[in-house]
Amino acid sequence: MNQLSARKRSDASEERSDEDLIQSVAAGERAAFDVLVQRHKVRLYNYLLRLLRDPTEAEEVAQEAFVRAYVHAEKYRTVARFSTWLYTIATNLVRNRIRKQRSTPKLVSISWGRGEEEEGERHDVDLPDAKDLPDRTLEKQEVHRWVEYAITRIPAKYREAFVLREINHFTYEEIAAVTGLKLGTVRSRINRGRSHFREIMEPLLERTLGKR
């Protein structure tokens, strides 16, 4: 009987909107927050993974974002969607983290051909040259690896907007809210992100669509 009523309660929670749930959290209903976490954790984690490129860091920031959302639940205002608010928190945490990494003195490592990479970012993806790929339809896994790699090569300031638009399907207005940028800047950054992405994917595009 108790299990049945608990399940009914749980189903009712899952039908509620994010905004309704976070207001319940602010009123002290902890269970409502569990539903929010289950709804958003995977997408948020993937977004952070694409920004930070490190699973451990992505998980750490995702957790921190959820903790902050929980602690400051009463500060949430219904003018924005809960997801916009949550991603704003997460994006700010990422920016702080990157800024901190840049300001931390680093040991100089001996490596070749990495001078053009951004500071505080990692590139540990080892991809085959597209020209060396066997002459056959590209395997999906290979495409995924290329796509992941290309995303990581987009400069950080364009990557946020690009990922939010192309993968998370946020509207331009939502991206502006998350990043704190003007609408025109958001549009421009997304376009620049797309250009970078296409440029990196060029070998694969040529293989798939043929040479220009």
Partner: peptide, 30 residues
Amino acid sequence: RESALTRQWLQELPIREPAPHFDWRLKLRL
């Protein structure tokens, strides 16, 4: 054509799950 293809590739990206202890760790932190 390029835009359509890159968009399709982006949509097909596999979704990665966070570590299995994610919920447990979050509850602990909370």
